[in-house]
């Protein structure tokens, strides 16, 4: 038998070139810039700069507020990821078993995906506004003293709620298509062997959904770290106090608003490594449990 041989000319390189170029221009170059800038003290206009080694990093790690922010970000990401995955899975399983009007259920559940995070944040902010918010009135009428402009935990509740609500749709779409990808013969065979729906779900359906779940876990973690920026910016701006400050929001505040490029770049680098480490962890340890 003869092995098929391809003559390796320049053409394969040409095919990957656009992709490589995009990565170089939009990822490697800015990331390199951030790393370079993180070792400098430079005025905003780039007129004078001084190499200061790890000074920016030392300043950041000696700041108790930064550590609080990091802890909050991790907890926030875990909460948002957990709730947006579980609720979406529950809805997908239910929608998958609906027979009548399945199409309308699915369409309605997918809708929120079309909403940009800042728009979702704006709506949430209005609903909880102490001046005109219906949810604000409702919660306070039920005897709870709720005000997300004054109370930190109320503010966290509001942004988690909006972030989860916004993310459920996309998770729902993936879970639903994952469920529909499970072949009927498997589920029918399971039905004969095991009468309990719940047990069937955990032993048959859920393991078969594992690749989807794993993919969504990675996507949702990065969502919670980065894309919730828009929600925070229009609702709490990191407040009250510093209760809803996430790492990415702090990068924005110090760099974009405050013009402290050195500190902001160092924070970006730390954040980049944190998310990188988290993703590597997910691939190394969780993916092992996934069967494709």
């Amino acid at each position: 038998m003869q092995k098929a041989q391809f003559h390796q000319g320049v053409s394969p390189y040409l095919f990957v070139a656009p992709q490589v170029l995009i990565i170089l221009v939009f990822f490697i170059w800015p990331a390199g810039q951030a790393i370079y800038q993180s070792f400098l003290l430079e005025d905003a206009f780039g007129l004078h700069s001084e190499f200061v080694g790890f000074l920016n990093y030392r300043d950041i790690f000696s700041d108790p507020e930064y550590l609080d922010t990091a802890v909050f970000t991790l907890l926030f990401a875990a909460t948002v990821t957990f709730f947006s995955l579980t609720i979406a899975l529950l809805l997908a399983v239910q929608a998958n078993s609906v027979i009548r009007g399945a199409g309308s259920y699915k369409t309605l559940l997918m809708w929120a995906y079309a909403i940009a995070p800042p728009a979702a944040g704006l709506m949430g902010n209005l609903m909880f506004s102490p001046l005109i918010g219906d949810f604000y009135a409702l919660i306070n009428a039920s005897g709870i003293d709720f005000n997300h402009h004054q109370n930190g935990s109320d503010a966290i509740f509001v942004i988690v709620l909006i972030a989860v609500w916004k993310q459920i749709s996309i998770n729902f779409i993936f879970f639903l298509s994952g469920l529909q990808g499970i072949s009927n013969s498997v589920t029918e065979a399971a039905r004969i062997d095991c009468p309990s729906t719940i047990k069937r779900f955990w032993t048959i359906t859920f393991p078969l959904l594992a690749p989807t779940t794993f993919f969504l876990l990675v996507i949702n973690t990065t969502y919670a770290f980065f894309d919730t920026f828009g929600i925070i910016d229009v609702t709490t701006r990191g407040g009250p106090g510093a209760s809803t400050n996430t790492l990415i929001y702090k990068v924005y505040k110090d760099g974009f608003l405050g013009a402290d490029l050195g500190s902001s770049s160092a924070q970006s680098v730390i954040l980049m490594f944190l998310v990188l480490a988290l993703t590597v962890f997910q691939f190394r340890f969780i993916e092992k449990k996934v069967h494709y």
Binding site: Q150, N151, G152, G238, G239, P240, G241, A242
Partner: peptide, 10 residues
């Protein structure tokens, strides 16, 4: 940040 923490009583 600090004023909000005063107001919330934290």
């Amino acid at each position: 940040k600090n004023y909000e923490q005063i107001l919330s009583g934290d």
